[in-house]
Design a protein around this nucleic acid. Structure first.
Lengths: 283, 283
DNA sequence: TATAATAATGACTAATTGGTCATTTGTCAA
DNA sequence: TTGACAAATGACCAATTAGTCATTATTATA
């Protein structure tokens, strides 16, 4: 659908300038030269637009980098990684600006989940690359190294994203390759252990927080099936009494409720120790 | 005033959770247990609250770090720097979260200016420290080194700020000292030159952009003095005809207009090559 | 050309926003 | 107890928001 694509592109421009919350649907439709009604023919809500937009750009961005690093016979994977990353950030600069600007994604569970998901994909790409390049010798420091690389990318991209100066991506990539290489070969201390990494990628949620969320959703939701499922899950959380199969079924009941996506994710994790595809702890 | 302090603290909590835009004055007053009117007795607007809040935390934060690095007889300034920085980030964690979340500060010229200002202060502290530590040998790579350090702080703090796991600040600081030291001693390539740094710290604004802004403000503002000053400045920008003293006076005329803060900053910079305290290009 | 089907409109709603101000409440000294 | 002054209230305002829907315009088919 052409209209949909037009809206996505124009909206991305506005979002990048002003952020999600500060950009109104009105503004978007005016900028597209269409009516408000037409917007809601393509997207059922503003949030759906935002989610599509992120899905769209992020999957493309990640796959470009993954391809550059892994699927080519490649004698300088580290250079390729940096190079493709910065080229990708420039290409998707609106999305990148948005990511820097609007980490205030707290206004939507689903959005938060999606961003976390793509972030963990990036982590994994970097880690695999490092392991392939340096092997056992960086076993102890690899997570720190990964964070340093992410730091490099963050600061340097922040520098050029909001400053349309000409950019020598090749030189930038070379200096970052050197830095990464130096760190890989000389670092002895490490701060991030494997355990820590797992905790961070999948932080424990305090039981009370979970109970609070459940309580809130119970009051918020009217559909009887979902409501009862939530009540039962809450009881089970307070005092485990149900079999895993029943719990899994109850979670399934609430899975597709638009207000329960994040809660579902947390319950799966806390009660079933189960994970969405691609976000399981690294083995 | 006690009330003012109460509002600042409570508002900071809410802002850190939800961001500036997503937090309403209503919400703040309810959370404080005061009326809406009482809020406007302490602050003339929501924006004034945000500005005070940033002023409050940032000046404290920066001075703590500056003191730790410079004003102590200190045999490990780099360690102190990292240590104090992370301790400071933890102490002001709400402000720190807000900074990560709400880089969408575009909704206020003054806010943008303030954040830029504190950012450049940090840059300078780091640079001075590096110069003192490593002297001439890092002359070519010091700006890159500074950006790496900022990257370290960004990623590592992002890791623990949203994750109230216990944190060994001392170990973290030590590993970052090692990394910084390794980079300082082995880096040969550099990406950021002195020139580039100056451009970035004080980006050139295209003349047309400035004219556009002027035009917009002229239409927007009713006060006759301010309006005429803007018109004259616009003419001078198109074809320089006024003496520096007159220009300076005209700029002074608009300086305190709430809608002209950012414009004033840019005009000073473009026409007078003058800078607010502490933001002048490094000599 | 006439009819059916789809696409697009924009006035409308209900809710929320930042901000105001006439009114009430509380606290003093006299 | 009174009166004067400051502190605090919350109903109210205009503006803006996301989202709806009866109406109109456009297109395809017969």
């Amino acid at each position: 659908m052409v209209k949909r694509q037009l809206i996505i592109e124009k909206a991305l421009e506005l979002f990048a300038k002003q952020g999600f919350e500060a950009t109104s649907v009105q503004q978007i439709t005016e900028y597209c030269g269409i009516s408000k009604g037409a917007f809601y023919l393509s997207f059922k809500s503003k949030e759906e637009l935002i989610l599509s937009l992120i899905e769209h750009s992020m999957s493309q961005f990640i796959s470009e980098i993954d391809y550059a690093v892994n699927n080519m016979q490649n004698d300088r994977p580290l250079y390729s990684f940096f190079y493709r990353t910065f080229i990708g950030l420039l290409k998707h600069s609106n999305m990148a600006k948005l990511f820097i600007k609007d980490q205030g994604y707290s206004f939507s569970d689903e959005l938060f989940l999606k961003i976390r998901y793509y972030d963990s994909l990036t982590d994994r790409i970097i880690l695999e690359m490092l392991e392939k390049l340096y092997g056992e010798e960086i076993e102890a420091t690899k997570y720190d190294l990964m964070y340093c690389i992410k730091g490099f990318i963050q600061t340097y991209s922040g520098m050029f994203l909001f400053n349309e100066a000409p950019l020598d991506v090749s030189l930038l990539s070379q200096t970052l390759v050197e830095k990464t290489d130096i760190l890989a070969k000389h670092s002895t201390l490490s701060f991030i252990s494997k355990d820590m990494m797992e905790v961070y990628e999948h932080p424990q949620i305090a039981k009370e927080t979970l109970l609070e969320m459940l309580e809130q959703k119970i009051n918020e939701i009217d559909e009887p099936i979902e409501k009862e499922s939530l009540v039962l899950l809450k009881q089970h959380l307070i005092e485990p009494s149900l079999s895993p199969a029943i719990v899994k079924g109850l979670i399934e009941n609430i899975r597709n409720h638009p207000h329960c996506k994040w809660l579902t994710y947390l319950l799966r994790k806390e009660i079933l120790n189960d994970w969405p595809d691609g976000t399981a702890p690294l083995s």
